[in-house]
């Protein structure tokens, strides 16, 4: 299923300066009961964002009106734990197109790439600089340039390059997904199946 093409994203960002954010926090298991991919953004960070009586927790960044934008900046080891793709769906559905952190858990990173959310890994120093800049001015903009694989903090002009494999990069630039690719080589796969002993 093709998704949005990703080229250059220039936007302000929400800061979430916590380490080891696991996918149970991103979306608790009790909200995984849908049979369609709809509405997960409402429950993004549910238990950090809302009290038990469903009133918003005012000090949580996603509830703070001073923050905005399509980038989520998270602490080190973002997305650990469960493989639930619902976590990536919730991030997307809330309106994010990019997550910046100094380290990502494998499965979450892969899930993001598969649905068109770009995970951008930066150094811990640069991550802290970004957090500092957003704290100083919540309107601070960040520019993520996929073609050139750079992320730039526009307030200081400081920039870092980030890694992405060239196959996934092409996919994201063009809005292609893996199933398109796999469908195209199905004959080759069918030949391979014949060689499998079990």
């Amino acid at each position: 299923m093709a998704y949005d093409k990703f080229n250059i994203l220039k936007t302000s960002a929400y800061p979430l300066s916590i380490e080891n954010v696991d996918t149970d926090q991103i979306i608790p298991a009790r909200f995984l009961k849908a049979t369609e991919r709809k509405g997960f953004g409402d429950n993004l960070f549910r238990d950090w964002r809302y009290n038990a009586d469903d009133s918003p927790k005012v000090d949580f960044p996603l509830n703070d009106p001073k923050y905005s934008g399509k980038i989520l900046v998270g602490g080190r080891n973002f997305g650990s734990g469960s493989s639930r793709e619902h976590a990536a769906w919730a991030v997307y559905d809330f309106g994010f197109r990019c997550v910046i952190s100094s380290f990502f858990a494998d499965i979450f990173r892969g899930n993001c790439l598969n649905i068109g959310v770009l995970p951008v890994q930066v150094s811990e120093e640069f991550l802290q600089e970004i957090f500092g800049a957003i704290e100083a001015n919540p309107d601070t903009e960040i520019k993520v340039d996929l073609q050139n694989q750079t992320v730039t903090l526009l307030s200081s002009g400081n920039s870092e390059s980030f890694e992405i494999n060239s196959y996934k990069k092409e996919n994201m630039l063009n809005g292609f997904d893996d199933i398109d690719y796999l469908q195209n080589i199905k004959g080759e796969i069918q030949e391979f199946v014949k060689t499998r002993p079990f």
Partner: peptide, 22 residues
């Protein structure tokens, strides 16, 4: 290993996923 739902769809449709070797 565990996979996301997009990959579940890949396996159902082509019995393959796209994985960089760890």
């Amino acid at each position: 290993f565990g996979i996301g739902t997009s990959e579940v769809e890949m396996v159902l449709s082509t019995q393959c996923i796209m994985q960089p070797k760890p």
